[in-house]
Design a protein around this nucleic acid. Structure first.
Length: 708
DNA sequence: AGTTCAGTAAACAGAT
DNA sequence: TATCTGTTTACTGAAC
């Protein structure tokens, strides 16, 4: 340990010349080479800039829209008009990086740093957005309250016109609710836009989460309460004293936006007994926390909308339950009346939520909420269809992951991979192993091994990347990386792959399927936060692996030596062992439908299509090496995928000997063409060889592989 | 219990 | 000379 860290310092310090963090210290030498070809930041306007511009426009439009709406409802002189037209501040922090040219930035900053910068900017941006939305909410709250006060005053003055006033309140409240819904929609669309542009991670940052929470369904419900909490003029009169506008406005700007209206009497029990404000507040907090921490005490965010409960996990689904009754409370929007038992609830329901104007109005609003969600669902379903079409997948494909039970059935198959969170819910983090925003949720392919690698590390400085069991079948590298690349980029978690498979992946991922050692280093540091430290150790391991494994072939290039992958050797590296594990075979086959393999397959498909875009076609006929990809004993499905991808993109993985002359060939030279292939290749070979078509083959290749 | 595999450490040599 | 690159050996632990 001491020796290692000492040697690390010795080795890294001298090369740390340009003052950049030690993360990329050793890669400086060849970093220029790779950095030059790396198109992370081009000479264009930064996406953040564009995004910001777009945001401002969108927000301005949204704001104008709301202003229009509000002015139609509000008495003049409301708070709204005092606001300047555009309130979204343009943060200097966001803009300042653009004072430097992107090229300069790239020179100054290492890719990880650039990424960190980008993320910072995103966070800032989201914060501002969040604040903006909060303000909008507050303003609406205020409007609502002033309106209520006015109404109440009017009512006090004109006791006679009770009924008329009541209806007026109802209609205006409805209008407000609609505004809120629209605003929520705007916000959701905005977030979706950001996500589509890839500028907001699918997994939310903290800012993202709070932004979404700022207008999550619970807020809507909260507003519901306020709206429906003044159901009749009598109650309004009773509650007039309870309203405290000053505290409201001040509170609502606090860091607890959801509790902004906590002091408002949430609702009055229709029989006249209303809770004391204190109690209401307490209950509101309770209520809120029941949404925010609905189902788990851990970091995982519920998969279902906060305002809803998973149908299967609660009592209301039991016999004698009622969808509007749960946890001893009435679940009517805005009503929290405590009902000890079902009988009491039914009574309450019949008494308080009978067919009247208020109930129908509430029902209408609820319908609108549902409609919005349906629209959202339709949009997302459409997108899903497009994605699946693009990926040549049958929409009827079995669900790869353990799908959340409560998701709407239609088109929700892959929703969790997209930004399809109808309620604007934050994506749950993949793993609680690290506080750094893991960007993907999931039955995640992050295997257990990756989570406990640190714990079972042996006497050396770092734990083994991967042990055998996870090696072969459980954690396809392509799938894992495709799904968790952001996670590994940010989290200091050791990837559950061997160095060999990582190196191979890096090489195959490169445009020319060849990398210099330094580029391999850079790939490691770029893709994995974990490899930004202990550089001496893992770099040594990389070199060790490159030298040790025959599958890595050093090729003398114009620019120097590059490393390529000999797939034949790579597949030979480990003989098929599946036959030796009947249970495993069984699992694999049974998992065809919805098991991990299918998950891998789907994730790999995604990666495959990604790679299709990335890899420039090398016009070379498919080699026998490609065919051998169908060989069994993969330690990850990615090999297949990548190979198929190779076929598809007309850039088959060549045995290096075919196009270059390796200066050094390890031990026995690789038999390229007529390498004895397992007979079991069967059908896979025949149809995969001549077909340049891409993913279509995959569907059939995989079973072949699995049957081995 | 033995074998295999993977990770780590380190020595060494050649190239830059 | 220092550093990088590449090779090789030895050891350890885990999985099989």
């Amino acid at each position: 340990m001491m020796v290692e860290s000492a040697s690390e310092t010795i080795r890294t310090t001298p090369s740390n010349q340009n003052g950049v963090s030690s993360l990329s210290s050793q890669s400086d030498g060849g970093g220029g080479r790779e950095g030059g070809s790396n198109g992370d930041t081009n000479g264009e306007i930064s996406p953040v800039d564009l995004l910001h511009l777009q945001q401002q426009q969108a927000l301005q439009a949204a704001r104008q829209f709301l202003l229009q709406q509000a002015s139609g409802l509000n008495s003049p002189g409301s708070n709204e008009v005092k606001q300047s037209p555009v309130q979204v501040p343009v943060s200097m922090a966001m803009m300042s990086p653009q004072m430097i040219t992107p090229q300069q930035m790239q020179q100054i900053l290492s890719p990880p740093q650039l990424q960190a910068l980008l993320q910072q900017q995103q966070a800032l941006m989201l914060q501002q957005l969040q604040e903006y939305y909060k303000k909008q909410q507050e303003q609406l709250h205020l409007q609502l309250l002033t309106q209520q006060q006015q109404q109440q005053q009017q009512q006090q003055q004109q006791q006679a016109g009770k009924q008329a006033a009541k209806e007026q309140i109802g209609s205006k409240q409805l209008a407000f609710q609609q505004q809120l819904i629209q605003m929520q929609q705007l916000q959701q669309q905005h977030i979706l836009n950001l996500q589509r542009q890839g500028l907001v991670p699918l997994q939310p940052t903290a800012a993202m989460q709070s932004l979404q929470q700022a207008m999550c369904p619970s807020d809507l419900q909260q507003l519901w309460k306020e709206v429906s909490g003044v159901p009749s003029s009598e109650e309004a009169l009773k509650q007039a004293e309870g309203l405290d506008l000053s505290t409201n406005s001040s509170n609502s700007t606090s860091a607890f936006p959801k509790a902004a209206s906590a002091h408002i009497p949430l609702h009055s029990l229709p029989n006249g007994q209303s809770h004391t404000p204190k109690r209401d507040r307490a209950r509101l907090f309770e209520w809120i926390s029941s949404f925010t921490k609905a189902d788990s005490g851990d970091d995982h965010v519920p998969l279902y909308p906060k305002g809803s409960q998973p149908p299967s996990s609660h009592h209301e689904e039991h016999a004698g339950s009622h969808p509007l009754y749960g946890h001893g409370e009435c679940k009517w929007p805005g009503c929290e009346a405590l009902c000890e038992d079902m009988g009491q609830f039914i009574k309450h329901l019949n008494n308080e939520h009978a067919l009247d104007d208020r109930s129908t109005a509430q029902c209408r609003v609820q319908m609108q909420v549902v409609q919005q969600l349906e629209i959202q669902l339709a949009k997302e379903s459409e997108r899903l269809q497009a994605m699946m079409t693009h990926l040549h997948m049958r929409p009827s494909e079995p669900k790869p992951y353990n799908q959340p039970l409560n998701l709407a059935s239609s088109g929700s198959l892959l929703k969790r991979d997209s930004d399809a969170y109808p309620e604007g819910l934050p994506h749950p983090p993949t793993s609680a192993a690290t506080p750094i925003t893991p960007l993907r949720q999931g039955p995640s392919v992050i295997s257990s091994s990756s989570l406990h690698t640190h714990s079972h590390s042996h006497t050396h400085a770092v734990g083994p990347i991967r042990r055998r069991n996870s090696d072969k079948y459980c954690t396809p590298i392509a799938s894992e990386l495709a799904q968790n690349c952001e996670f590994y980029k940010n989290a200091d978690v050791r990837p559950p792959f061997t160095y060999a498979s990582l190196i191979r992946h890096a090489i195959l991922e490169s445009p020319d399927r060849q990398l210099t050692l330094n580029e391999i280093y850079n790939w490691f540091t770029r893709k994995f936060a974990y490899f930004r430290r202990n550089t001496a150790t893992w770099k040594n391991a990389v070199r060790h692996n490159l030298s040790l494994h025959k599958c890595f072939v050093r090729v003398e290039n114009v620019k120097g030596a590059v490393w390529t992958v000999d797939e034949v050797e790579y597949q030979k590296r480990r003989p098929p062992k599946m036959t030796g594990s009947p249970t495993l075979v069984k699992n694999m086959i049974s998992g065809l439908g919805f098991g991990s393999l299918n998950a891998s397959y789907q994730a790999a498909l995604a990666e495959s299509s990604l790679s299709l875009l990335n890899s420039p076609p090398l016009v070379t006929p498919p080699s026998a090496a490609s065919l051998n990809m169908l060989h069994v004993g993969h330690d990850d499905v990615s090999s297949t995928v990548e190979q198929v991808n190779s076929n598809g993109s007309c850039s088959p993985t060549l045995s290096p000997q075919q196009y270059s002359h390796p200066v050094h060939v390890k031990e026995e030279p690789t038999e390229v063409e007529e390498d004895s292939r397992p007979v079991s290749l069967l059908a896979g070979v025949t149809h995969s060889l001549p077909l340049p078509s891409d993913e279509r083959d995959l569907e059939e290749d995989l079973p072949t592989e699995e049957l081995e």
